[in-house]
Design a binder for these strands. Structure first.
Lengths: 204, 204
DNA sequence: AGAAAGTTGTGACTTTTGTCACAACAGTCA
DNA sequence: TGACTGTTGTGACAAAAGTCACAACTTTCT
């Protein structure tokens, strides 16, 4: 059931479904656990069944988000690593308590890619979407002032007009420091764009 | 001959070689020609046989490099577009006079991906390399001050310790303005890191 | 309740980057 | 040769972002 829909790609082949069942193992991680650390070898494909994982790059005291993995999302970098042995250049940390990960050995991912049409489409689609998304982020980072990137980010992350994140978390996601975020948020509040609460930001 | 080595992937299947010959058309472009414009539909896979193409994003008066296509390199974004109809979000311009492009219709690219193992490996590899490269650029952009990005860029582009580019070109590649580049280059010269000449920078 | 940890606000300051204006020089071409 | 275009240098200033220091408030845990 779970593996029949991944990122909008339906797994149709019965044989592939069986292979998935046979080879996948499921692990659980607590909030704050590292799923992968920078410079560590990646050996399995990771798909988040439930929970939330933050994949980011770090630099001394700062961090920047590459992507979040939410329920039923696949880690593009682990998929990428399946095709050539390599070390991770990012960190991944469980952001929510009950995270469950499905591990599929590298050689299967590679073989399935040519054996099953739906898996092939799945692979390509993950790469395509991730690449286009990253280019977009890249040019935003290059051209948009932080205050705009912050506001856009808040809008994109809002549930019912509300974002439940601390300033520190936002700083880590946007690649800056806490003080800078606090200041920009205050300015946005003065301009009636948002309303600030404790660990909560309401978009007006 | 040409199509047997693309990005380190050897095309082995005789049938695929034949298909390439049969379906590819070769076009030439003059320096300064737009190969693709932002918001335009991409309909064919583009591989640069000779010359140099700059693929970039623009924003009002500034630009930032996504990648260069040199001899025998494949445009990742056109490859990506083969798998789903979409408009380009970037521009591509011929940077050198004699550019020749090989056009392969979308449906072939898609079909070959499942039909020929070497083509499949080729596709995946392009995506993998491009994605990893972009993540690296992304975190540099986020964390490295421009003066470091500039110096690193010069080192990476130097041939025999020399970079033949104007300050304006460097600005367009690094996503900033000409004056800023001029100033930073002067500082690098003062610090004995480089030596400045007319449209030429020598790395010490 | 009280300590500890996490969160937010903010002033003062520095560094980095962007903008504008203008001058000087080099290379090209009629 | 002289106009034109492209290239480089630079001062003055403005805006954006980062740093440091410290205070106050909230939440959590015991």
């Amino acid at each position: 059931m779970l593996e029949t829909f991944i990122k909008g790609i339906r797994i149709t082949e019965e044989e592939l479904k069986e292979e998935l069942h046979k080879n996948a193992t499921i692990t659980t991680h607590k909030k704050g656990d590292f799923i992968i650390k920078n410079n560590q070898y990646i050996k399995v494909l990771k798909i988040v069944l439930e929970g939330k994982v933050r994949v980011y790059q770090e630099n001394e005291d700062r961090e920047i988000l590459i992507y979040y993995l939410n329920t039923m999302e696949t880690c593009t970098l682990s998929l990428s690593a399946c095709f050539e042995d390599c070390k991770s250049t990012v960190n991944a940390i469980a952001e929510e308590d009950c995270t469950i990960i499905l591990n599929i050995p590298v050689r299967f991912v590679r073989d399935w890619n040519f054996k099953y049409k739906s898996w092939n489409r799945f692979t390509i689609n993950i790469f395509r979407q991730s690449y286009l998304y990253l280019i977009d982020q890249y040019s935003n980072l290059a051209f948009q002032p932080l205050k705009d990137r912050l506001f856009d980010y808040l809008v994109s992350k809002a549930h019912g007009g509300v974002v439940k994140k601390s300033h520190q978390e936002l700083a880590k996601e946007l690649g800056t420091t806490r003080e800078v975020i606090s200041r920009l948020l205050k300015t946005l509040e003065k301009n009636k764009k948002i309303h600030l609460g404790q660990k909560q930001i309401e978009i007006v």
